[in-house]
Design a protein around this nucleic acid. Structure first.
Lengths: 271, 271
DNA sequence: AAGCATGTTCCACATAATGGAACAGATCAC
DNA sequence: GTGATCTGTTCCATTATGTGGAACATGCTT
């Protein structure tokens, strides 16, 4: 038996692949889209597109507004609730987030790698900000966030390669990595010290220190992080917190490992 | 090791319909499922089922654990975040939830009807309970919850009929409606007074008063509610709050109506 | 009224899903 | 060890499903 092989990246796995491509296109827009707008964005024939949209609406994955425009549907929320509630990393990370939050007073996150992005699973606000749940489920590029780089640093070479090949580098700030080699160099550093910084690489005035939670041979890759505004959090503070974050991540890692192992079969050497 | 629950063979809209049926089966279980378990629950041939699961995993809708069992995937969270963040009812309801919460001191919800269920969009806890976001995205049967009955009461006859035909009545508590006529009678009452009670019909010791937010000819149907434990919230309290909840729902309703009405507004298509 | 842009329906055709059977790996009984 | 059995995986001829161009319908603009 082969170990659970990572999904190959060919977008459009048959019919559901095409449907998901379309769903993502509509959901990730920042406003409802009309059929014709989508038409221009995906270059499909009108007839096909129309039918696909109808299917997605019928399934509750999209909602069609009275003006015929499309937006993401409620069924996603229902399903995601379970994905969230049942997530092992999230539930086991909770007490560690508490500790980190108590120790630093800043916002703490736990997230997981999805393709080339980091998806936030949970957070604890520095103060009780209004934003509440706002960040849960939010996705950010992995190559320019603390959590993302921490996660990337712990990927096995083969999988890292496929992820790297799909990254499109964009200059979010002056500090953003803009090419593969620059990123790889930092990943090596992160691998050695066990934590990653975000030096205002994704958003100006936002800094972060993160540590990976990984699983050796297993595929689960994510991390926990402490984030704060630059005016309040110096790089020195981050460096001071780094060992704490790393220790928390390692403890969480061990816990996850044992939590997963009873149900898991022995992992034989790769056949 | 059998009871994973049988998926009813609703209208599976082509290939994506079948895929969603399967996704729902796996996601709504309370634990990761192995291929063979799913096999018993959906009665498909092994080959077909295996391929479908592979597709869902490849798309990130399911995740396969090291022990080969399946659980809901991260991509659902990413997509649902947008469904949540962009939801009009939720964002417009927020200030009304504040008011209701201030006025009653109890937990307040806003939710929308999805098929025969109510999906919770947002909540404000009575006190700062640990549960945080726990209820967002959660689905509960419409026929035995305050929000659900309020929403049902405002459905147009035709749509109500199709929803009613799909309800399967279950005795969650001694007070749960157990047949269609009993439910219809109450819906008529709700329609007349403009608010709905949940008299411990879904969970023992939990009471609720809710009012519908609907849109006349539009399809959006949901509501807002105040919920509390029976030991603290008497039916008299609920009756006292009912007009307040109804007033808030109506104000919200008007706001939504005007927010959606510039439906004639033309979205400039990029040439 | 004519022109144009949009959404919808239709149907011969191409593609993707189907499902039975064979294969493979692991576990268990003996 | 050997065989029985349970699980997950792969294969391929058959069939169901999706495809996409074109025609149709509708509403707004000129």
């Amino acid at each position: 038996m082969k170990p659970v092989e990572e999904a190959d990246q060919d977008c459009g796995t048959g019919t559901v692949g095409k449907a998901m491509l379309l769903l993502e296109l509509v959901a990730m827009a920042d406003r409802p889209l009309r059929l014709t707008e989508i038409l221009h964005s995906c270059g499909q024939p009108r007839g096909s597109l129309h039918r696909q949209l109808r299917h997605l609406v019928a399934e509750g994955l999209l909602r069609q507004r009275p003006d015929l425009s499309y937006e993401p549907g409620l069924r996603l929320l229902k399903l995601a609730h379970k994905a969230w509630a049942r997530n092992d990393l999230r539930s086991l990370a909770s007490p560690y987030l508490d500790k980190l939050h108590a120790a630093t007073g800043e916002t703490v996150h736990v997230g997981m790698l999805l393709d080339t992005e980091i998806v936030y699973l949970d957070k604890m606000e520095s103060r009780q900000t209004v934003t509440m749940i706002s960040r849960i489920g939010q996705a950010a590029p992995a190559y320019c966030t603390g959590l993302g780089k921490a996660a990337l640093s712990s990927l096995l070479p083969e999988r890292l390669e496929t992820v790297l090949s799909r990254i499109v580098f964009q200059p979010f700030t002056p500090n953003t990595h803009l090419d593969r080699s620059s990123l790889l160099t930092e990943l090596e550093t992160i691998r050695q010290c066990g934590y990653a910084f975000d030096r205002e690489e994704h958003e100006k005035e936002i800094r972060c220190v993160a540590a990976p939670v990984f699983d050796g041979q297993r595929n689960l890759v994510g991390g926990i992080s402490v984030t704060g505004p630059a005016y309040r959090v110096s790089m020195d503070s981050l460096e001071a917190w780094a060992p704490v974050v790393r220790a928390a991540a390692r403890a969480l890692n061990d816990e996850l490992f044992t939590a997963l192992s009873p149900s898991a079969r022995r992992l034989p050497s790769k056949s």
